[in-house]
Design a binder for these strands. Structure first.
Length: 263
DNA sequence: ATCGGTACCTGCACGC
DNA sequence: TGCGTGCAGGTACCGA
């Protein structure tokens, strides 16, 4: 579910708990934890939240004493403030005022407590909204895989996912099966611009609510109404009217216009 | 190092 | 109504 715009929206909806203290932490699902639940609870109890940020699709909460709580929402993870626990509530942070709970039906998400930023996060690629054109071009040159697969690789850029990869490629007029290293400079430039545009607009709309994505206050996003190819298989292309096609790239459903996106 | 394929889960829509 | 199938925003891990 959550790609960069959705995670950014969630972060913005929980920044107001910065300054609050974690009174206690309860975990009831081991699958979503990186680490031992008792050790994690002990490490969190009593800590004050000093800051909340985003790194790619990871939510990073900085705590007292240099500790970090890192949350990845996986496909169906949610962070929710001020509501009642449900069937898929797997973790609850009781705060000195209110509570933050983690819900995740598919349990693909992960919670982790570490001293400082987890090492894995250091190895991710640059933020797609910050990467410069020269760096973007240089990184693409090194990749032999198809462009869609490369955009999904978090070591290439961090934060792109299936929706925004398809949408950026459509807006740039690039076929998802094109080889990354073979893209002409003009197309590389267009791709970077399309990526920045689509992510920026999606953030402005609060992300895409495909089935159940909501921010910490339960608010849906509206960018799903702006999708031009994602999950529009068979529907007419907004530019040329040709039916949108679906194929598989890197085992992911991939949507494109066969007329507007030439190889 | 990089690549493609697979595993990990639940829920939903669909056809029969 | 019920059942099987395929599909869904994710990463990690495996051999090649």
């Amino acid at each position: 579910m959550p790609e960069l715009p959705e995670v950014e929206t969630v972060v913005r909806s929980i920044v107001r708990i910065v300054g609050r203290r974690i009174v206690s932490a309860e975990f009831c699902c081991l699958r979503i934890l990186r680490g031992d639940p008792d050790q994690m609870s002990a490490a969190l109890a009593g800590r004050r939240i000093r800051g909340i940020g985003r790194r790619g699709k990871f939510i990073v909460m900085e705590l007292d004493g240099g500790q970090c709580l890192t949350v990845h929402l996986g496909m169906t993870g949610k962070l929710l403030l001020d509501g009642l626990p449900g069937r898929h509530t797997h973790a609850v942070l009781n705060l000195d005022r209110g509570a933050l709970r983690y819900e995740d039906p598919r349990q693909f998400g992960k919670l982790e407590v570490s001293r400082g930023l987890p090492g894995r996060l250091e190895k991710l690629g640059p933020e797609p909204l910050e990467v410069t054109l020269p760096e973007f071009a240089a990184r693409l040159k090194r990749r032999r895989a198809r462009i869609k697969a490369v955009l999904l690789d978090q070591h290439f850029v961090r934060g792109m996912g299936n929706i925004y990869a398809d949408e950026a490629l459509f807006r740039a007029g690039i076929h998802p099966l094109a080889l990354a290293s073979r893209l002409r400079p003009e197309r590389v430039k267009r791709l970077r611009r399309a990526m920045v545009e689509v992510l920026t607009q999606a953030i402005r709309k609060g992300g895409s609510s495909i089935s159940d994505y909501v921010d910490a206050d339960g608010r849906k996003g509206f960018f799903q109404f702006e999708h031009r190819v994602y999950q529009r298989t068979g529907e007419p292309c907004v530019t040329c009217g040709a039916p949108i096609r679906r194929t598989l790239v890197a085992q992911r459903g991939t949507h494109f216009c066969p007329h507007c996106q030439r190889r």
